[in-house]
Simulated scan of single mutants.
Amino acid sequence: MSEETYTTNLDSCNPSDCASCTANCSSAGGSSQGSIPKVPNPTIKLTLDDDSVLECAVLTTFPVEGFGEYIALVPLNKDGKNTDGETYLFRYAEEGNTPVVSNIEREDEYMAAAEAFHDFIANLKSEEELAAETEE
Rank of each mutant, 00 (worst) to 15 (best):
G29K: 11
N24H: 11
G68K: 01
A72F: 00
E135Y: 02
Y70A: 02
T60E: 03
E105A: 14
T87V: 15
A23F: 09
L76G: 07
N123G: 07
N24W: 13
R106F: 12
G34D: 06
S32D: 11
F62V: 03
I44M: 12
A116I: 04
T5Q: 10
T8P: 05
S102C: 09
V74G: 01
D119C: 06
V74D: 00
F117K: 12
S12I: 00
N14Q: 14
S35R: 15
S2W: 05
V74A: 05
E129V: 01
Y88P: 02
E135P: 01
V53W: 04
S16I: 04
C18H: 08
R106P: 00
V74I: 03
D79E: 09
G66Y: 08
S27R: 13
L76V: 08
F67Y: 11
N123P: 00
D49S: 15
E69P: 02
N41R: 15
Y70E: 01
T22P: 04
G30P: 09
A131P: 00
E69L: 14
I36L: 13
S2P: 11
A57D: 05
M111P: 00
E127F: 02
T22V: 08
C56R: 09
G68Y: 01
I121R: 06
D119G: 05
I44K: 12
C13I: 08
T98I: 09
V101D: 10
A19E: 05
S2C: 04
S126M: 02
S31D: 06
L73K: 04
P42T: 12
F67S: 02
V39L: 09
G68T: 01
N14G: 04
T43L: 11
G85Y: 08
K125L: 10
N82C: 14
L59H: 06
G30H: 12
E107I: 08
C56P: 08
F117N: 10
C25Q: 07
V53D: 01
S26L: 15
D79W: 06
